[in-house]
Design a protein around this nucleic acid. Structure first.
Ligand code: MN
Ligand code: MN
Ligand code: MN
Ligand code: MN
Lengths: 218, 218
DNA sequence: TTAATTTGTTAGACTTATCTAACTTTATAT
DNA sequence: ATATAAAGTTAGATAAGTCTAACAAATTAA
């Protein structure tokens, strides 16, 4: 059984692999805030366990087994977030921190029961998909709000980034998942959008905000 | 911040101290299934942190600070058990194992929220008291069923031992907390009790069972 | 195509938690 | 009071996870 620490490496490897099939030691060290020799040592252990393939001076690749193990941790994380939000009434800006701890709990039936109580949800409170136990999950092709033209009517479906700061900003603006937004104006100069939602019009969202909102066209 | 492992030592020290003010290294090692040198090393560290007092060849005593830290872990454990049982519908024989993991979660507000959702319970699903954050908890003076005479009418309030095996035995007998029992007969030869409850009479409970049931006289 | 920069590796050290074997001190029993 | 047993300590070793300093390889830029 992998330790908490190993699980965090596996999860990081999975995230990095989603951005780029080939993973660099530097990126891994950066992601986990450890030195390159530390990351290198761990890669040797994970290689011995069949979780990555790696050869001297060559980029690292995660194996099918590695993906399976990563999905298991991510499933625990996202089910926990959903349970904390829906059942325990935590805000979506609070759940990630707690889920970072809960995801390492070994007893599977805790998460199976969460899943059951929640009615087998397919996404977490930030719109990210919850993998099933075999590691499969939907990857719907949402667009960034910042990619869409004036006049588009969209529904917010997920976030590209879910830092507490960003979530608190969205709270302040009363923007939630499934909020229906109409794009009224795009300011060419700075990429900011003027939008309307919930019957309020003229709300200005900066470029970096629109870049983080994943939406579906209505 | 204490690691999981240290927290387990602190909890063990607290349990041992409840049986016997003075704690021996052997008992500590036995409790945690580690060797005496291992326990000894940890005691040196805990002494440096002010959690125990201990001098060479003298028995170990837990400090007020040690008790406070133990109570914090026990509170997390017992609130978790109660949450798992009441809200997540796990059986009382299932909750301990999961709570052994949950008790090490750092984020206090998770447990505060459990407490809130549960309506500030004073005991766990096995009748053990839940300490408050300052480490105070009720220690009601229940009697063992095995100490009471024929004719007594009692209510089961807690268990002296909560192994999954014992709890499954109680499930089979439909005995729960708050079950009202009447003692019909005591067999002198083997100390077994014949009792009635829930309208069923003539149920025989062995000595070891009666020894584990903590009851209040009606 | 050489030089500079980035990336990866090695070597050596530290911390925490664990062990066994051997020894010392304290307690118990004859 | 002495011998035996139990409890506690020391010494030395191991494994996991981390670091820094120094060096080697690969990539990128000039
Ligand atoms: Mn998260
Ligand atoms: Mn999330
Ligand atoms: Mn328990
Ligand atoms: Mn309990």
């Amino acid at each position: 059984m992998a330790s908490n620490i190993k699980e965090n490496y596996i999860k990081a490897l999975f995230y990095l692999h989603q951005k780029n099939e080939e993973i660099s030691l530097s990126a891994l060290g950066e992601e986990l805030q450890v030195s390159k020799p530390t990351a290198n040592d761990m890669i040797k252990k994970l290689k011995a366990e069949g979780i990555v393939v790696s050869e001297k001076y060559k980029p690292i690749r995660i194996t099918a087994e590695g993906k399976r193990q990563a999905a298991s941790v991510i499933r625990k994380h996202r089910l926990s977030e959903m349970f904390l939000a829906q059942i325990m009434k935590f805000g979506w800006e609070e759940v990630h921190e707690i889920a970072e701890e809960l995801e390492h709990i070994k007893t599977e039936k805790l998460f199976d029961r969460m899943d059951d109580i929640l009615g087998f949800p397919t996404t977490d409170p930030h719109g990210s998909p919850i993998p099933d136990k075999d590691g499969n999950f939907n990857k719907p092709d949402y667009k960034r709000l910042s990619q869409l033209p004036v006049g588009s009517v969209v529904i917010i479906k997920a976030l590209r980034e879910s830092s507490a700061d960003f979530l608190q900003y969205l709270n302040k603006k009363s923007i939630k998942l499934n909020t229906k937004i109409t794009i009224e104006h795009i300011e060419r100069f700075d990429g900011s959008y003027t939008v309307s939602y919930d019957g309020i019009s003229g709300v200005v969202l900066g470029k970096s905000v629109c870049d983080r909102l994943l939406v579906k066209l209505v």
